[in-house]
Simulated assay, not measured.
Amino acid sequence: MQQKFKKSYKFAIKTSLYITIFTTLLTSVFLFGFYKVNLLYLIVFFLVTYLFSFMVIQYRVERFIYKRVKKIYDDLTLLESTSITKGTITTDMQTLTEEIDRFARDKKIEIESLKVREQYRREFLGNVSHELKTPLFTVQGYILTLLDGAMDDENLREKYLERASKGIERLGYIVKDLDMITKLEVGDLSLNIEVFDIVELIKGVFEMFEMKAAKKKITLTFDRDYPNPIFVKADKERIQQVLANLIVNSIKYGQEKGTTELSVENLIKNKVIVRVTDNGEGIEKKHLSRLFERFYRVDKSGSRKEGGSGLGLSIVKHIIEAHNERIYVESDFGVGSEFSFTLEKAK
């Protein structure tokens, strides 16, 4: 807030004028009725009365407003009282009203923002506890069963230990992904920027997941032939992680005998856009705005059956934003989805 309100004498000028005119007229009637008074005396009386009224009103109104405005700020804690004493509180009520209105609007926005954050915090803590609870209880159940006597059965022991190991592995994924997101948010995760061929990188990711895609008979393909390399400037390992997450999601939620298609297009002079398109189940519009939140799942039950930490898309978003780039999503429910992100083209 500004230190001083705009100086204004309008109220004092008008009020003093009204008082002076009334007093002078009343006095002139009385004096002319009983005494013959020179007009010059009336003019002097008018000026003296006006100046006296102006100074008294201006000073008293300033003090009157100052005391009450200071109390308002003290009570509402909108501004420290020490800062208001440095300024001059005048009769300019319009400036005062504008300042208080502005503070009221700011407070309302702040309260609404805090409510949204509190809601997000509750959901996040609930999601974290659920994601950690599931593998923990699974591991605990298998270990307790082994301790209760199943350890003597060699086949059962091996099967339960393998399942417990998978639960521990999932816990490791969740903790690792949470650690990565935290580092990305606070800027502690440094990026190793280099020049590489994005087409070659996509081919490598295709090879990583071709067996996973084959289980659902999903075809991993480019939209066209790319005979020439397309060089971009980014962190190769992190962009590989982005592509891996997006392709795994397209396989996970893709339909049997479906297609996951990758394309690389020139966006502007120094940018390319990478698109990952599938013809899977798609996403309803109500979920799109929250899709990149940590642990947010479109299908609360089905998605957990598919596994994963629930942090994949959030990591993707943070990695892309760490490159100062943008990520987009478009989807038609029942038709398919397209995730796309921009990268800087190497010169």
Score class of each variant (00 low, 15 high):
215 K>F: 12
111 I>T: 12
62 E>Y: 06
336 G>T: 02
189 L>D: 06
327 I>L: 01
224 R>M: 09
85 T>E: 13
298 V>R: 12
229 P>D: 03
54 F>P: 14
191 L>F: 08
50 Y>G: 00
340 S>F: 02
335 V>R: 13
334 G>A: 11
265 E>M: 04
177 D>I: 03
319 I>L: 15
59 Y>L: 06
331 S>V: 01
333 F>L: 15
286 K>R: 01
76 L>T: 11
207 E>I: 14
300 K>N: 09
263 S>P: 01
180 M>Y: 11
113 S>E: 12
345 K>G: 01
249 N>T: 03
208 M>R: 15
3 Q>D: 05
288 L>A: 05
95 T>M: 07
145 T>S: 07
107 K>H: 11
276 V>S: 06
147 L>V: 11
127 N>W: 08
234 A>M: 02
147 L>H: 07
90 T>W: 07
133 K>C: 11
125 L>K: 03
29 V>N: 02
131 E>G: 00
215 K>N: 13
236 K>I: 09
343 L>F: 07
169 E>C: 13
100 I>L: 15
20 T>A: 00
126 G>A: 00
74 D>T: 10
69 V>Q: 09
140 Q>P: 14
306 E>P: 07
324 N>E: 04
282 G>Q: 00
92 D>S: 13
318 H>S: 04
41 Y>E: 13
194 E>D: 12
50 Y>M: 00
20 T>P: 00
203 K>C: 14
3 Q>K: 09
289 S>F: 06
198 I>M: 00
289 S>E: 12
254 G>Y: 10
